[in-house]
Nucleic acid binder design. Structure first.
Lengths: 166, 166
DNA sequence: CCCAACATTCAGTCAATACTGAACCTACGG
DNA sequence: CCGTAGGTTCAGTATTGACTGAATGTTGGG
């Protein structure tokens, strides 16, 4: 506690990340917390640190931390001889976060499958639109791991190597 | 007007699509309208048809139709000698919808860039996390067109052709 | 065993926002 | 030039859901 306050620009970033994540189904607080954990010092922050930095209640911190951890966007760690829990957003979690993008497409694929089932007795021509959309989602869902893999390989191969042959 | 009502299963699909899109930043009505346009008969529906089918006000239909059209998820067409406007969700729009996914990643990349600018005077080690996240977004953003292209080629090449060499 | 510190839960409050519906605008038809 | 049908806008309403904070677990120290 008693860490330095955010600068104006840091606060702007934290707030913008809050709005950005809120625009895609998470809460503003989730975005703020993630944003702060991406730029804070030290890297690991206790619930008290976060409540202080984000001017939020303990309850909000608790619930939001769970949401972010479930989504694979932050990590929670405990230390022996310390009751507190430490939150952080280390680079490793980004890969997991990226892979999770596939879950979205899977969700939509499943919805379209239920829709197609509801149209079971309609002529194939009527079902074509939804079938096509289903195929789009299924394709992307299947493609995500490959993209993740390519990213990891590019990073491992060094920043200089681009390997962007068409 | 006076088209048949939705079956229970159709209604369930429409409602589920409403919730699904609502979970990702659009309104429930947008999801319902999209869902209905994916399964309705005839394919093209007037604003009056939609208001009737979805039990929604004309105002809601108007605003929602604009939102979906802007997002490239539906098409609006007009015919000579008919003042009405027709809405539809033909297969062609899905490609555009898929390509739009790149916009999301671009948005996040830009946010992270502003964050990095806000950390300009911090040591490189502190900036590493956010820089890494930025690289993830930038990579995916750049990768989206290739994925779209691959989908189009697979579809054009026939359902049997898979071409999934690593 | 009790205390203190930290974390979680959840009912209540408040702000954000999706939707309604009436007024307004526009364009074609007579 | 008026009438009508379709489309849009926007102020108001209702609903949702994010956040608060006090009560309730839980874990380690004395």
């Amino acid at each position: 506690m008693l860490a330095r306050m955010m600068t104006v620009r840091e606060s702007a970033f934290v707030e913008e990340m809050g709005q950005a994540l809120a625009a895609y189904g998470m809460t503003p607080m989730a975005g703020r917390m993630w944003g702060w954990l991406l730029i804070c010092d030290p890297v690991e922050q206790t619930a008290g640190d976060l409540a202080d930095a984000l001017q939020a209640s303990r309850g909000a911190i608790s619930g939001t931390a769970r949401m972010l951890a479930t989504a694979g966007m932050i990590r929670r760690t405990k230390r022996g001889g310390d009751r507190r829990e430490y939150f952080s957003a280390p680079p490793e979690v980004f890969d997991q976060f990226l892979a999770n993008a596939g879950r979205i497409y899977r969700h939509f694929r499943e919805v379209t499958e239920r829709g197609l089932a509801a149209m079971a007795d309609r002529p194939p021509a009527d079902r074509a639109r939804l079938q096509e959309l289903h195929d789009v989602f299924a394709f992307v869902e299947q493609e995500v791991p490959a993209v993740v893999d390519r990213f990891l390989r590019e990073r491992a191969g060094g920043a200089g190597r681009k390997d962007r042959s068409a």
